[in-house]
Design a protein around this nucleic acid. Structure first.
Lengths: 225, 225
DNA sequence: GCCAGACTGTGCTCTGGAGCACAGCCCGGC
DNA sequence: GCCGGGCTGTGCTCCAGAGCACAGTCTGGC
């Protein structure tokens, strides 16, 4: 069942069963508790990671100590590829948001694996291109949208990836504190709290600790654009 | 001499001379005048482009018509790869900032070319990884830095790529109006103008139309961090 | 089950920067 | 060489959102 999650990962999706199993053997596993960091911005390191279970946050710290989150990654998602192809120190700190298990693969092993397997290379290219497109979208949002808009967008994105639809709405156990949510959208904790409270008072969502239930997807989506 | 510029492009750098010349034959050339658009956000299209001479801007327009520039690209730089690996409509509009010549390569030709040439795939991966790192940096700047800081950073980046060092300072013919510069850093024209005027009054730079001379790199760099 | 520390909710103040208005200015076309 | 349209420079107003202060609430460890 471990393999199931990995099989979903874009890196593996282009591989047939034997190949996937073979690659699997050169990977090693690890685990993190909530709050534990896997590596820090500036560290050396050339491993690629895939989340098996749980969630991690990918963040950077400014010179004066403020934090900004680049992404929240869940099962099947990959990170650490940057230091892999664009050599240099790690560009972000990775911290577990929930207890997390992961698999890792070394630079060397991956490159050996890439040779003569254009499908894998294309898979990686697709993955990176998608990430780049997303990053560009984030830039556009920061420039064009106000804080409530960015909060709405972030919630919809989290709902998309971690939500479960029930009869009263979409339950999103994002496991983030409002502080973390604020860092994710590039705003202050207070402003995000007020935006959330406003959405709740309009009946668009219900707030729960580290979780929300989206009641009116329609209006939330409209607010996000 | 055409080939010289292309040879510098990361896509080609991994190739030996024969291979580069061969690839060159499957590319076609084009030209644009200042202000002319090559393609628009939302267009279909799967070509990859390389700037031979001149500069283009890569921009997006918000629903209410405001613009944001993702990048200014000069000779040897590549664009359009996104639609290539992450299929979908073009995610940005590309417009010439000066008269420009370019070469283009179709999706099909590039993929054919990729097969069995891991070095080229790695070149592309490196290129994309670099772009992603840069995009992440832009996000961090938008969150952490104020407008003057972002202006300083943008000028230093332009100086790095387009500047010529003379005895009175680094001449940067960026060819951008202040409006475009503002769109590049995600701020209003007026605020950018005031930041520039302030830098000039401190003697850090001299303003010229569509161009600046950086007189004090040291202080500019300090302001940018 | 109780307590401390972490998280959440909300009012109030203050400021960076947007946006408007308008005044030079410069450059390119007739 | 003159006129007009696009640039550039600068003051003024106003507001979104940061940051502070503090109260209320939840939670996990003993």
């Amino acid at each position: 069942m471990d393999n199931d999650v990995l099989r979903q990962a874009p890196l593996f999706s282009a591989l047939d069963d034997e190949a996937a199993t073979a690659l699997r053997t050169s990977m090693s596993d690890g685990r993190l508790r909530r709050g534990e960091a896997l590596f820090h911005e500036g560290d050396e390191g050339d491993k690629l990671y895939i989340v098996k279970d749980g969630k991690v946050k990918l963040g950077r710290t400014s010179s004066d100590g403020r934090e900004n989150l680049l992404a929240i990654l869940g099962p099947g998602q990959m990170f650490g590829e940057l230091s892999l192809f664009d050599p240099g120190p790690r560009s972000a700190t990775v911290t577990a948001v929930t207890d997390t298990t992961y698999s890792s693969l070394s630079h060397e092993d991956l490159l050996r694996w890439l040779e003569g397997r254009p499908a894998v290379a294309r898979g990686l290219l697709t993955q990176l291109a998608g990430r780049l497109r997303r990053a560009n979208d984030v830039v556009a949002d920061l420039v064009f949208s106000d804080v409530p808009g960015r909060v709405a967008k972030a919630l919809l994105d989290l709902a998309d990836r971690f939500g479960r639809t029930a009869d009263d709405g979409v339950h999103v156990h994002h496991d983030l504190t409002q502080e973390e949510l604020a860092q994710l959208v590039g705003a202050s904790r207070e402003t995000v709290n007020k935006a959330l409270a406003d959405f709740a008072s309009r009946g668009w969502l219900r707030l729960e600790p580290r979780s929300v239930v989206i009641l009116d997807l329609e209006r939330m989506s409209r607010r996000a654009r």
